[in-house]
Design a protein around this nucleic acid. Structure first.
Lengths: 244, 244
DNA sequence: TATTGTATATTGTTTGACAATCTACAACGC
DNA sequence: GCGTTGTAGATTGTCAAACAATATACAATA
């Protein structure tokens, strides 16, 4: 009865992964990609039918998502995709600043020439995307850049917390640097980061990372201010979120 | 706000909390208090009968606990209380160092005289406990001290991540500074922290916090080394963990 | 001794059931 | 008209029973 393309090799996957985990990951994907928007209510039956499973695994997935902060469960009312207020986003940015500073310091001491080359290759691609004003491509590379940095530290716990934070901030707004004017600025900051890491100066690298996060947060606030001005009568939760 | 013994008015609680949440919190308590020890296998039926509920809520609780990192789920094998290797604990300490540094910096800029008094009162009690060589009392106060610090930052996200980390480190070893000889050293570090925060020097306060975490990690390693020497033929997972 | 087979326990998932609660809406009284 | 009350329907929270799939322990076999 259920021959949809996306769920073909389900059998193989179920040999190693529980169905609940797959459901959880799928819902997470739907949320982070924006196919399910913030604030939206999720019904057990609705998700269960959409994915072709029963209520049980869906309930379990909900609990996992709630624990990771992507949804909010209200007893007898349902689960809602979490909405992140700007104040919460600021808190997240503050923590991220501390983590990125730590990443910068660590990498300045441990990075290899090969890894530096990898980062510089990413920079080249970011430069190209920025030159073309391609916000989507740049954002994707930007994400990859930071993800790679934290991975290079070799600290799994750090990477886990970092990604948890990024998910939340993604939830807040999927286009932090939506304006193509800011791409060049952002790119320069990334160059500075790589440069400081390459100089093997932990404090300088940490400062560059922290400064970048602070600047990102500022850009986020500016974007918000601009949007608020344009829309004027702003109804934040209902506004259409542009696709990426 | 919630000063009831524990299981007084279960009915009231169920009005606002789902049974799964309560089960999850109870299992978490059992784990962190050591009543369930690291590495132990938890069966759905066993926990369900122990708490007088059915398998469903227990499964959900397990998923929540797995997401928060306290248990590990292996498909078709069961859930196990997570064991934290020393390498993982080190990763945790590294992240905690970054977070505590952030806390120190923030508090140096925002703390009030009243809050400082509160911290100094805690220091007095810690001094007393250290003087009596009461490791248990000191550890408890130590925990309260740091918990209070992060709360004073007003950054909820930071507090959340911090507590998540502390839970994991608790899981690793419930007695980090088990040796009464180190209490005085630890106390001095805490005094230094309060002093630097009081001096309103963010960088100095951050450094004091970071240094304290590094020293704590060192003490943890020393304790381990001593234990290993005593036990010699060390079988880490089976060794008796001292109460508290 | 190593391998294979088998019994048992546990997990993973489904289904059905039902009480509790929320939500929306209609009926009612003022 | 407007606030209150009542009711119906939907959804959640929990339980229970069932069964396939898998893991584990142990016996049988080569």
């Amino acid at each position: 009865m259920d021959t949809r393309p996306a769920y073909d090799s389900t059998i193989d996957l179920l040999r190693s992964q529980s169905l609940s985990s797959l459901v959880q990951r799928e819902i997470e994907r739907l949320i982070l990609s924006g196919e399910i928007s913030a604030g939206e209510k999720l019904t057990e039956l609705g998700v269960a039918e959409r994915l072709g499973v029963s209520r049980g695994p869906v309930r379990e997935a909900f609990r996992g998502l709630a624990e990771s902060g992507l949804v909010r469960m209200e007893k007898n009312r349902g689960v809602f995709v979490r909405t992140v207020a700007v104040e919460e986003a600021d808190e997240g940015f503050a923590v991220r600043e501390a983590l990125e500073e730590m990443i910068g310091r660590a990498l300045a001491e441990s990075i290899t020439e090969g890894e530096l080359g990898e980062l510089r290759a990413l920079l080249v691609r970011m430069e190209k995307a920025a030159g073309q004003g391609s916000v989507d491509a740049y954002s994707e590379l930007n994400f990859r850049f930071h993800d790679r940095l934290v991975a290079l530290t070799g600290n799994g716990r750090l990477a886990g917390m970092y990604q948890q934070l990024v998910k939340e901030l993604t939830l807040f707004r999927r286009q932090t640097l939506a304006r193509s004017e800011t791409l060049a600025v952002s790119l320069a900051e990334h160059r500075e980061i790589v440069e400081k890491i390459a100089s093997r100066d932990p404090m300088a690298a940490g400062r560059a990372m922290a400064a970048h996060v602070r600047a990102s947060r500022e850009r986020m606030h500016e974007s918000r201010a601009i949007d608020a001005g344009e829309v004027d009568e702003e109804r934040e939760t209902q506004r259409e979120e542009g696709s990426t």
